[in-house]
Structure formats: structure tokens, C-alpha cells
Design a protein around this nucleic acid. Structure first.
Lengths: 202, 202, 202, 202
DNA sequence: CATGAATGAGTTTTCATTCAT
DNA sequence: GATGAATGAAAACTCATTCAT
């Protein structure tokens, strides 16, 4: 066994543990994630987890990052440089909307992780923003810079446009609305129009 | 002591416990709410809590309802029948936005209560919707009925309009943006325009 | 209200409490007898019990005595002075046997009371023996004195004769044997014969 | 350390806990057996008990079985195949009588375990009867089959014969009678004679 | 690296008892 | 005598973490 295979093996076990943790969180909620049960699911001994993670809290923090990185990957799927801003926006919005709808548990899991005791939500949010989600901010900045979007702080734009994808998906999940493709397209289109500079003067 | 003062006294202790519970949830998170600590904060014996609430879960359910009723009261503050739809919307949006900004922890607490293990979120959501938040839905239905708003499901309208108040407030809290009154007004106005039927055809 | 009616009323409530206690013990076992539940059953406030009994243990001790007095009454039912020893024995044995069979819970209740923590079984046993059960000992002494029974210590005679009624009833209860009248009569007769001096020489 | 010593070590701790439990039950009664105190007596941490027993009830069930197996072993001590029925009976009776006398608390402990709330006595009784105590039933069946004993249900025979050993021992314990060897022998002999078919016709 | 037995502080909940009314 | 709200010690049980192997 060489160093490389060792590292790979090590990484695999880390990931195995993280995946088992997410599964347990979505299956059994925050209380359902005991280290003993996690070990069973990951097919290792309880003590072994502590070879890879300092403690439960560190494990959960890493899980949050791990999930966010996966989410970010989904978000920018199918983006290419030749697309227009609007094309990119539609893809971004659809990816987001569909991610929430297709894996609603994951939204819960992220919430559990964000609301867990002793966790400073701002800290990790900032870490993520400046890394995995930076293309999202770059996208909006570009729209601002070329006079397409209102010259507002990006968060203001997000609250009217990007966030609507998550909002609508949540409403659908809660309300058991039928997923009406036409309606979804209308909301998406509206959320695009509302941040256009030329269409709306306030 | 008469019956009335007795009831008031009894109610006071219930409320005292609920308030202490909310404080602890926002200060220490879901884990931080142990019944022993709660008793200390409420300045009573641990056993006394069980004179007022069957068990911890019942207490948390009541807390959720208690908070939602307070929130709903805030939401419709300053509404009068003579106001136009737009006036009502502005009040509603401002109330919501300010509620989140002024008591950001409360949003977290509600999430903790909704995400707590073994809790069926839909059940309570429906209870609340059909009661304390029904004016919100009535408001949107009215706008739809008189051809002011798009004839979409109310949730679709919410995701573009009302939700933006919460979204923006959250972004401000997370980002520590200065609360720029003009920007806030712009976002609010945009969120109003986007659901108008006459202004936008999709 | 005069002193007499007060005493009668007082006595009634004592008995009411004791009866409720026995009912709860047989219905719900030892754990099922909480003072709060007992108060509910007796239709009084929890604190009121302490007007009649010093504490739970004193209540249970009195219940044990109360039950034993009732049991003793059953035991000697239908005894008359004109009956022969053997007639008396048959009545005694039948009464005992039937008491156990008809109210098996009562046997359990007595056991619960005897095995309760901190209870010195010998103490109460002796109190009872020298009082409510003294006719039983008198009966055996009479048989010894007139040369009918073996001149053994009464306990030795009991272990072969009277005890068989309880033993058999217990076996029937545990085993769900059919209550075969003929068999019961045979056992009873055998238990009578075995203590006769003239029939058995050892 | 090999597998065998590991198993032995594990078994030892189980047994240590069971022995401590029996001691506490006999010393302090049913209430006196708290898991914390049990852990102290067994010189382990409170949580360790739950490595070996699912919960308190499972522990008590195992204790009942454990004790009954030990009791059964004592019961049939010194039996050999060449002995006559009467020889076997005398040994059986003496073993039983002495077991009760030598470890009177054990009788109480067994009763506590049988009478403990939520415990179905019949279930375990049947398990034991069909296993550890089956030689006892075989013994009586043999006596019935070869026309030595009355052809009654075994329980009827037990109530007159075997049970007398326990009855007498209990009476001696309660009464603090001197253990009179001659008297004991007489009772034992009487209990043997009473179940003989040839000696007694009813 | 991996194990899993052992730990013990921590949890929720019960309940006999008290005492101001 | 009667009440019942309040008490707080104690119960059974959980579980993140450690450490000898």
C-alpha cells in the first residue's frame, strides 16, 4: 500500500461517514444521528469516527460544507460561457428549483445543520459565499456592471429573483401543489423581469 | 383571591414558561433547552413545568402557536378597511420586514420548532394558515378576484412578493448590510409591481 | 354536626381511600398506586389523604391490616359452635380455597404489600396472627388438645393441611386447570387425614 | 487475551451485575434496586449495565431465570438413577426445605420478580417448568405411571407433598421455630405418605 | 489505524409530600 | 378539615467520547 492509496482509502471513509450522516439526518432527524448508529451505518466501529473527525460538531460542520459543495455543483450545471445572461439565469433558477423539489430532505438537513446548537451560521455562510457560491455573485455582478440589472446590492437582487426559486419550491412542497410547468415558467420569468433595469423604474 | 385573578396568575406562569423557552431557544439552540434550565430561567421548580404542560413536546407545540399568534398580530398591525390594496401591501411588507429585522432570533426559533424531530410541520402550518394567517391569504385572494394580481395560486404570488420581505431581511442580517431605507422601498415596490396583472404579461 | 357523625364521616373516608388503594393495586400494580391517582379515585384532593394517613407507607400498612381482617372474616364464615372439628376444617379449607380462587388479585395485592420496601413482614404477620387469625390457631390447638391432631407445633400441621388449600388454589390459578370439584374434595380430605393422630404413625 | 478469556470476562460482568441485583433486592426490596445503586454495588458505571442488558426489565427477567437455574440445580442435587422413588423424594424434599431455610431472601426475591409490574408470570413459569424444573414433573409422572402416587394432576400432588417443604420452611422462618430435625422428618414422611395410592383411599 | 467496552454527565419525567389558602 | 399548586429529589436511560488493546 502506498501513500496515495492510503489517502484515497482515507478519503473514501471520510465520505462514507458523511454520506451515512446525511442519510441518518434525513431519515431520523437531528436526534436520530447518534455516533453509534452512524458507525453502524458506515460499517465501522464507533471509535473509528474519531480517527477522521475531531468530534461530532466538527463532523457536522464538514457535512454542511460537503453538502453545500454538492449543491453548488448542481446549481451551475449546464452553464457555458457562450450563454446569455438570461439563458444562464433560467438554467440557474431551474437548477435551484429542481434541486429543492427533488431532494427536499436535503433542505431540512441543511437547516438542521445550520440550526444546531453552538453553530455560528454567519461564519460558514461567509465561507461558502466566498468559495463555492462565488459564481452566483459573479453572475449578478456582471448583470449590474453591464447595466442589465438594477444597480442594487446583490442581496437585494437575490431576494427578488434567485430566492423566488427556493420560495416557490418550498411552497409547492408544503402545499402539495401540483408542479405546474407553465406556472413555474411564469414565476421564473417574472423574477427575471423584476430585476431588469430597463423594464422597471422605481 | 377570586377566580379571575387565579386564572390570570395561572396564565401568567404559562406565559412566563413559554417566554423563557423562547429565550433559551434563541440563546442556546434546540439542545440548549433542557427542562431543568428552563425551570431555572422561569424561576420555578423543574416539576412545576409539568403542571402546565404535559411534556416537553406539548410545550414546544404551544410555544410555536404562541409565537405565530404574536407574529400574525404584528403582521396586520395598522391595517384598516379603508386602505387600498397597495397601501395594505406596503404595511404588510414593512411589518414583516421589520419583524424579522427587529427579532431575528424569532425566525430561527420558529424554524427550530418546525424542524424539531417528530414534528409534523404540515399539520401546524395548516392550522396556522386557516387561522391566524388567513387575512394574508384573504388579501391575496381579493387582489386576484378584482383582477389586480395575476390569477396564479397564492403561493406563487407569495414567492415573488411577500417572501421578498423575509428574504431581504435575512440577507441584511446575514450580510450586516446597512439598512438602507431607499433600497428597501425599491425592493418593496418591485415586489408589488411584479404581481400586478396590468404591468406584466407573460 | 356532632362528634359521632364526624367520626363516622371520617371513618368512611378512610375506608373509601383504602378501597380505592386496593382497587388501584390490583388494577395497575404497585407502580400504579400514585397518591395523585389514588386521590382521584377516592374523589378527594391529593393533600386530603394526608389528613387520614401519615404517609404512603402508613396507608399501605393499614391497607394490609384492613385486607387481612376482611380475609379473616371470610375464613371463619359459616362456623358455628356445634360443628365437629372435621366440619369446621372443611368449611375453613373451602373458605380459604374459594377466597383465593375468587379474588386472585387480592393475593397479589397482599404480596405487593408484604414485599414493599422497608416493610418488616414479620412484624405485621405477628400482629395479625395474634389477632384476626387467632381462631385458626385456636382451632388447631383444640385438635391437639383432644388428641385428634398430631401433637406437633401448629405450623407443622398448617404446612400439611391448611396451606394445601392455598397451594392448590395457586396451582389452579397458574396452571389454568379446570376447577374439578371431585379433585378438590380429594385433596381437602387428604389434607385432613394426614394430620390425624390415629391414622398415621410416624 | 484470547477469545475464550474475553467471553469469560464478559460473562463474569453479566453475572456480577446479576448477583449485585439479587443482593440489593433482598436487602432493600423492589424499590431499592435503582440502576445507579446497582452500578455502585457492581463497581461499574451506570451506563455499563446497559451494555449487558437492554433495560431494567430485561435484567430482572434474566435474574429470574438465573436464580431459577441455580435453584433447580440445588433441588436435584444428589439424585442418582438407582434411587427409589421414596429416596428421591426425601432428597428432593430436604434439598428444597434446606434451600429455603439457608437462603430465605431468595424466596422473597423470586416473588418480587414474579410480582413485579408488567411481568407476565405465566410466561416465565411455563418456560421454567418445561426446562429446569422438568425433572420434578417427570418424577411425579413416574410415580403416577407406576401406580405409586394417586392418579391426580401433578399440581394436586405438589400442593400436598412438595409444597409442604416450602410451607414448613416459611413457617419456621417466620416463627423463628427451632429447626427440630425429628419434626421435620415427620412432616416430610407425612407428605410422602399422603400421596401414596395404597395407603389412602378417598 | 481500528476497535468497542466502558464511562458518567446529562436528559426527561414522575411523584410523595408540603403548605398557604 | 380540605385543597391543589408547587416542590425537588430521584428514577431510568442515552450517548458523545475515551482508551487499552
Amino acid at each position: 500500500m502506498n501513500v496515495h492509496s492510503l489517502l484515497v482509502g482515507t478519503m473514501d471513509k471520510r465520505i462514507t461517514i458523511l454520506i451515512a450522516a446525511e442519510t441518518l439526518l434525513s431519515e431520523r432527524g437531528f436526534y436520530g444521528l447518534s455516533m453509534k448508529l452512524l458507525a453502524q451505518r458506515a460499517d465501522i466501529a464507533a471509535g473509528t469516527i474519531y480517527c477522521y473527525f475531531k468530534n461530532k460538531d466538527a463532523l457536522l460542520s464538514e457535512l454542511l460544507i460537503h453538502i453545500n459543495m454538492q449543491v453548488a455543483n448542481k446549481l451551475f450545471e449546464n452553464w457555458t460561457d457562450t450563454q446569455s445572461l438570461q439563458q444562464k439565469y433560467e438554467i440557474l433558477w431551474k437548477n435551484t428549483f429542481n434541486s429543492v423539489l427533488r431532494n427536499p430532505q436535503r433542505l431540512n438537513v441543511v437547516d438542521m445543520l445550520l440550526f444546531r446548537p453552538g453553530h455560528d451560521r454567519k461564519e460558514i455562510k461567509n465561507i461558502l459565499r466566498s468559495n463555492v457560491f462565488s459564481p452566483l455573485f459573479d453572475f449578478y455582478q456582471q448583470g449590474i456592471d453591464n447595466n442589465t440589472f438594477h444597480a442594487w446590492p446583490i442581496e437585494a437582487l437575490l431576494s427578488l429573483s434567485f430566492d423566488s426559486a427556493i420560495n416557490l419550491a418550498k411552497h409547492i412542497l408544503r402545499q402539495r401543489l401540483e408542479k405546474n410547468e407553465e406556472l413555474v415558467a411564469q414565476v421564473r420569468k417574472a423574477s427575471w423581469l423584476i430585476i431588469q433595469k430597463q423594464n422597471n423604474q422605481f
